[in-house]
Simulated assay, not measured.
Amino acid sequence: MAIRQGLLALLSRGPRYGYQLRAEFEESTGATWPLNIGQVYTTLARLERDGLVAPGEQDDQGRVVYAITEAGRAETERWFATPVAQTDRPRDELVIKLAMAVTAGTGVRPIIQAQRTATMGTLQRLTRARRASAEDPAQRLVLDSMIFQAEAEQRWLDHCEAVLAASPQTQERQA
Rank of each mutant, 00 (worst) to 15 (best):
Val53Cys: 13
Ala54Lys: 12
Ala54Gly: 05
Ala54His: 05
Asp59Ala: 12
Gln61Asn: 14
Gly62Arg: 09
Gly62Tyr: 09
Gly62Thr: 08
Arg63Ser: 08
Val64Trp: 02
Val64Glu: 02
Val65Leu: 09
Val65Trp: 14
Tyr66Arg: 07
Tyr66Phe: 12
Ala67Asp: 07
Ile68Arg: 04
Thr69Tyr: 07
Glu70Ala: 12
Thr76Phe: 03
Thr76Leu: 13
Trp79Ser: 05
Phe80Met: 08
Ala81Gln: 04
Thr82Ser: 12
Pro83Phe: 10
Pro83Ala: 11
Val84Ile: 15
Asp88Ile: 02
Arg89Ser: 03
Asp92Ser: 04
Asp92Phe: 06
Asp92Val: 06
Glu93His: 03
Glu93Ala: 12
Leu94Glu: 11
Leu94Ala: 11
Val95Pro: 00
Leu98Cys: 06
Ala99Ile: 11
Met100Gly: 02
Ala101Pro: 08
Ala101Tyr: 03
Val102Cys: 07
Ala104Gln: 14
Gly105Ile: 05
Thr106Met: 14
Thr106Gly: 03
Pro110Asp: 08
Ile111Cys: 04
Gln113Ile: 09
Ala114Pro: 02
Gln115Tyr: 06
Gln115Ile: 02
Gln115Phe: 10
Arg116Trp: 06
Thr119Phe: 01
Thr122Cys: 03
Leu123Met: 08
Arg125Gln: 13
Leu126Trp: 01
Arg128Gly: 03
Arg128Val: 14
Arg128Tyr: 03
Arg130Ala: 15
Ala132Gln: 10
Ala134Ser: 13
Ala134Phe: 03
Glu135Ser: 11
Asp136Gly: 00
Asp136Tyr: 03
Asp136Lys: 06
Ala138His: 14
Ala138Lys: 14
Leu141Trp: 07
Val142Ala: 12
Leu143Asn: 01
Leu143Trp: 00
Asp144Leu: 08
Asp144His: 01
Asp144Gln: 05
Asp144Trp: 00
Ser145Met: 06
Ser145Asn: 04
Ile147Phe: 00
Gln149Glu: 14
Gln149Trp: 01
Ala150Tyr: 09
Glu151Trp: 01
Ala152Phe: 08
Ala152Asp: 10
Gln154Ile: 15
